[in-house]
């Protein structure tokens, strides 16, 4: 078989569609488990989980497989859709949709909605987590010993530095670093690296590792006074599109891979349960956050 057939053949395109689609189902299950901590876990738990997910090498590898799967699934889907449209240049004057399900006929439209959602979702959360220098770090209020309160950064377990205090705006101020430098006669010349580390320039010693407050970012996003409601509604609608996409897609992947046997009724049942439960649980989270006092 010619090598190009790996991409060109109609059936091979469907294998790729199925494989990437099923992998993305696994990703959805994992992502959901993480998200549910927004309801059932503490903010501390969620932020530690977020730190793990952005730093663990195995997770990093999986995340690349996920990005590639999403891109491949989308490109393959677009190629298939273009070919399918070409296969019927003149349409029917009258059509009757009774012989197939609405979801199965609109996989490309549903997929486009989901792709747009993924893009905005990544801009709102993923990109901020990875690239936003102004993303808030995890912090807490403590007694300042004089009856007042002050805000202190929370570090990962082995980098608790009690003197990492914040200014009124909740940020590490240049003045604060200068004060430390003066107090220690220049022994501690600090700077922020990689957005979360505070390093002593003089010795190269990492004196503090904080972590990003994804929990706060997420809660603020859906509780936003002006747009929170729209973000929540948008999220729920995207999950509705995902539900329809999975309703057809899950069992369809098995058919494309040639699995149609005594297990098919069970696969269909599981696929439909997955298509309802997973998007529903995803959608409950922003609604919960939006309504939470």
């Amino acid at each position: 078989m010619a090598k190009s057939a790996l991409l060109k053949s109609s059936i091979v395109k469907k294998y790729w569609m199925a494989l990437t689609g099923l992998f993305l189902c696994l990703f959805l299950a994992g992502h959901l488990a993480g998200n549910l901590q927004l309801i059932f876990g503490t903010s501390q738990q969620f932020n530690e989980y977020a730190l793990f997910m952005t730093t663990n090498p195995a997770v990093k590898l999986l995340s690349y497989v996920t990005y590639i799967s999403i891109i491949f699934h989308a490109i393959d889907g677009i190629m298939l859709t273009i070919q399918n449209k070409k296969a019927r240049p003149i349409g029917y004057a009258k059509t009757d949709g009774s012989s197939s399900s609405l979801a199965s006929r609109n996989m490309a439209v549903l997929g486009t909605v989901i792709l747009v959602f993924i893009a905005t979702h990544m801009v709102n959360f993923w990109a901020k987590m990875h690239f936003d220098k102004n993303m808030p770090l995890v912090q807490k209020e403590i007694d300042n010993g004089m009856g007042g309160k002050q805000i202190q950064l929370v570090g990962t377990k082995d980098s608790q530095m009690p003197f990492m205090q914040l200014d009124q705006t909740g940020k590490l101020s240049k003045e604060f670093f200068e004060m430390i430098k003066a107090q220690t006669q220049g022994q501690y010349d600090l700077e922020v690296q990689d957005m979360t580390k505070i390093v002593n320039k003089k010795t190269g010693e990492v004196v503090f590792i904080g972590y990003k407050d994804l929990h706060k970012l997420t809660v603020d996003f859906f509780k936003d006074a002006k747009y929170g409601l729209y973000f929540t509604i948008g999220y729920v609608l995207a999950m509705l599109a995902l539900a329809f996409h999975l309703w057809h897609g899950f069992q369809s992947a098995f058919q494309s891979l040639g699995v149609n046997n005594k297990f098919t009724p069970a696969i269909k049942f599981f696929g439909r349960a997955f298509a309802i439960i997973v998007p529903l649980l995803f959608a409950i989270i922003p609604v919960f956050l939006h309504l939470k006092k």
Binding site: K13, S104, Q251, Q255
Partner: peptide, 27 residues
């Protein structure tokens, strides 16, 4: 010809009741 989206419309409209199992077997 286009690609299969597994909508199952063909199986329903086939005058001879050819099953989708045949597409899976071909795959």
């Amino acid at each position: 010809f286009g690609n299969c989206t597994n909508t199952g419309a063909c199986e329903i409209e086939c005058p001879k009741g050819i099953s989708l199992e045949n597409i899976a077997r071909m795959n």
